[in-house]
Structures are given as C-alpha cells and as structure tokens.
Amino acid sequence: MLVLGIESSCDETGVALVEAAGPGVPRLLAHGLHSQIQMHQAYGGVVPELASRDHIRRVLPLTEQVLAETGRSLAEVDVVAYTRGPGLAGALLVGAGVACALGAATARPVLGVHHLEGHLLSPFLSADPPQFPFVALLVSGGHTQLMRVDGVGRYELLGETIDDAAGEAFDKSAKLLGLGYPGGPALSRLAQQGDAAAFKLPRPLLHSGDLDFSFAGLKTAVLTQAKKLGGELEARKADLAASTEAAIAEVLVKKSLAALKATGLKRMVVAGGVGANRLLREQLNAACARLGVRVHYPELHLCTDNGAMIAMAAAMRLQDGQAVATRTYAFDVKPRWDLATV
C-alpha cells in the first residue's frame, strides 16, 4: 500500500510517500518540504493569508518532486492522506482540497489525519522506532501534552498546558529579547553562550502534584527581568536566554518523569518542534538512563511539521484497522481538534 501524505497546517508545506507492506512499520520512500520562515520573518510571525497562498504554490510541485524521486506515478498511489486539523483554517483547506482533488482525479480514497497524531507517531519514521505502550511528550507549537499511548488510536491524556505551551514560551520570550522569528531556535542558539543559573526564573506548576503545564507566568517573568535590566539587557541577553531555556526544560523533564512513574512504563517518545531542543534531549536522556527508560525521538529534520508524519500516521491507522479511507471527496477541516476524540 502506497500512501501519499500532504501537510499544510501552518507554515510548512510537506509531501511524502510511505509504503506499508505486511505487518511491519511502514517505510518512508521520499519526502519534500518547503518552509515559509523567510517569508514570515518580515512580520515577526505567521500571516495566515500569506501561508495559505504559499501552500497553493508549493504543494503540487512538491508532489511531483516526491513521485519523481521514488520513480512512482500518481496512479500507483493507493491512498491520499492530508492534515485535517488542528491548524490554520485557510492553510488546512489548501491541503485538504488538493488531496481530495487528487483522489477524485485518480479514483483513489482519501483520509484526513490529525496533525498531532502525525507528530505522536513520527518517531516510527526513525531508525530506532519505539514499541507500544509508551508515554508521549507532545511539544508542538501551541500544544504541550503528556499522553499514555497503548497503540494506534489508543491515547489517554495525562496532562496538558492550561495556558501557554512550551513552544509559545520559547517564541514569546525570544520576541521579548528581540530575537526575531522563529524565536525558539534563535533563543536556544543564544542560550548556548549564556549562564543558565544567572537569573532565578519560575518553574510554573513544577510541584503541583499533577501532570499539567503552565508557561504564561514564565513569559511574564522574562518580561519583568528584561525591564529590570534596562540598558544592561544587551550584555545579559545570552544569560537570560539560557535561564529561560533551563526553566522550560526542567519543567518538561520533571513532568515527563512524573508521568513515567504514574504509568509504570519504561518507554518514552518525545515529538514536535521543541523535541529538537538540545538541552531538553540531554537532560531527559540522562534522567531516563538512570531509570532504565528508553527515549525515542523523530529524526531532527522530521521534528517540525512535515508530510512524512502524515503519511505514516495514515498508513499505521489503515494497517491497524483504526481508520477507513473513503471515496467521499467533499471535505471539511478542523482548526480545533482534540486528539483524545480521534
């Protein structure tokens, strides 16, 4: 079974082809990705209308590129999958519309995929795929969640953010420090030059006794500290960046360890853009190694949004009988969509 996956939920256009043969993990044949970062930098963040228009320009050339790389034709594709949500409504509509048009033109069934499920299953694309069950830390954009994953489509929410997500804390703190867009990677790069113990920043809900997160207070503390520094901010910017990154990483690691203890599981998956953070990986790997816990990540280039994770999630759902692709080409999208309802 060949699955063509299309991702267009925000500011990356992704297309990929995955092959599922037999009971094993589906295999990624090729993927293409276009990032809109350069286009949105002038505005300091994603402009939804511009994002949608750029998806229109990119999705078909990327599809042609992926098919050419694999030597396959559109007629050989068995299922066309696309991101149905959550995400920007206009951007989602582009991917859904193209996928359903391709399906209708070739009489192939289509399948809408949950964006976060794509991230959740993205470590199965790696050379060291996990095995069920596991605890998953999803840290993607506006989402920070801990989940127990017993199989494809069998997800139990353990905890989530009650306000800002980890990715938003990175991006908003970076903006306060004047680091530009995208803020998270810029803050992490600057943090490598600073002293993480230079400023005592809060670790919200660290000792709350539950598995929920809150990062809005941390962002406010960064703002307060930046104002206190005044003219000294430029000279201390790296220290403040390092202290901010350390606070976010500590909360994510401690809550993840608490989730492992609560479930008794010995395997963990970290997925989403923040999962590429160097400090988070170092601290989580060290802590889990002491506990005899295996940690799995997607490959670094597949941490951000991409078509490979959408094709993989669709293939795994179809293999497991958790979804049925249809030849109903009328489509809708879900800009807000709770993963627990999938």
Results as ranks from 00 to 15, higher is better:
A30M: 11
A191M: 09
A242R: 02
F134I: 13
L177P: 00
S122Q: 10
D320M: 09
A311W: 02
G209K: 07
A105D: 08
A242K: 00
Q145L: 15
G87E: 08
K227S: 14
T106G: 05
P123H: 11
L62S: 05
H119V: 06
V15E: 06
G273K: 02
C10G: 09
Q225H: 03
S8Q: 08
A226K: 06
V3Y: 07
Q65D: 15
S122V: 05
L284M: 12
I37H: 07
G118P: 09
L291D: 09
A289C: 08
P185D: 01
Q65P: 10
G167W: 05
P130I: 00
G45H: 14
G264Y: 00
V149F: 06
K237N: 02
L4Q: 03
H115I: 13
A325I: 03
L240D: 00
V46L: 10
L190N: 02
A242W: 11
T244P: 06
G141E: 13
L218H: 11
A197P: 03
E156I: 06
T326A: 08
G5Q: 02
R148V: 03
G87C: 09
H207E: 15
A323H: 01
D54G: 10
D332T: 14
H55L: 12
F199H: 01
T326C: 09
G87R: 08
G71R: 04
E117W: 03
V15F: 13
K334E: 13
L211F: 07
A81R: 05
T70H: 03
L137H: 09
L120F: 03
D54V: 04
A107V: 12
E168H: 07
K254E: 15
A21S: 15
N285R: 10
A186K: 02
T328E: 15
L176R: 06
G24P: 04
M147P: 02
S52T: 10
A276D: 07
G44N: 14
V46S: 11
S122T: 03
V324W: 04
G209W: 10
W337I: 06
A262P: 09
M316Y: 06
A226R: 06
D210E: 01
A96V: 07
R290Q: 15
L284H: 06
R267F: 12
H114R: 03
A216W: 08
S208V: 10
N306F: 00
P182M: 05
R108H: 11
T63E: 12
Q283A: 03
G159A: 05
L120Y: 06
A196H: 05
T263M: 08
G85Y: 00
A308D: 13
S208D: 14
A91T: 02
D163T: 01
S256A: 14
D305S: 08
A340W: 10
H207C: 01
D171T: 01
I310N: 11
R72I: 03
P26V: 04
H119K: 00
L137I: 15
W337H: 13
P61C: 13
I162G: 12
I6F: 14
